[in-house]
């Protein structure tokens, strides 16, 4: 039995410790917001937070994830109201939407570590996440917007 803590909830799962976290999240826990895109840590669609870092769950085995704090897109905020989610909605970022869970999870790490990221910071943080629809320009704008939302919220 492997002990997994996902979105603050403890799970005991009976699975191969070599199974990537991605498949445990999707097929066993039924949290399908985390996506399979490449299985090779190339596209970032499977990005989740592990102890706050934006790990690629498709290459992170259960034996590494066991006992760690995992957060998926479903746990990014209580009410779809993380500053990034607000900005994503305001600027109509997603097209097909498939990569956006991963984009948001990556952006969340950037925004936590850098309250006012520059375009260069965004390039440096976000280039591990592929979007085939080409929403990059809007992701960039939405991260700037989210930084602004976050700063405004901090003033209150």
């Amino acid at each position: 039995m492997i002990s997994l803590n996902v979105n603050g909830k403890q799970h005991q799962i009976d699975a191969d410790p070599n199974m990537p976290l991605l498949w445990a999240i999707r097929d066993i826990l039924g949290l399908t917001g985390t996506k399979y895109g490449c299985g090779a840590a190339q596209c970032g669609a499977c990005t989740v937070h592990m102890n706050g870092e934006a790990v690629r769950s498709c290459v992170t085995k259960l034996n590494r994830a066991a006992g760690q704090q995992i957060v998926t897109i479903e746990g990014l905020s209580a009410n779809n109201n993380h500053p990034l989610q607000l900005a994503w909605n305001e600027l109509n970022v997603p097209q097909c939407g498939y990569c956006q869970s991963g984009q948001l999870m990556s952006a969340a790490v950037l925004l936590r570590e850098n309250l006012n990221p520059t375009d260069q910071d965004i390039d440096d943080a976000m280039s591990g996440n592929i979007c085939r629809c080409g929403t990059y320009q809007r992701i960039r704008a939405a991260i700037h917007k989210a930084a602004h939302i976050q700063q405004e919220a901090a003033k209150i």
Binding site: I73, N80, Q85, E90, N92
Partner: peptide, 27 residues
Amino acid sequence: LNRRDTPIKTNGEAIFGLDKRLPGMLY
């Protein structure tokens, strides 16, 4: 106007083909 499918594409709720599940489904 804002797209109505954006909220569910920012919180993991949107069901894509790969996310669909049926009772008794095999892979």
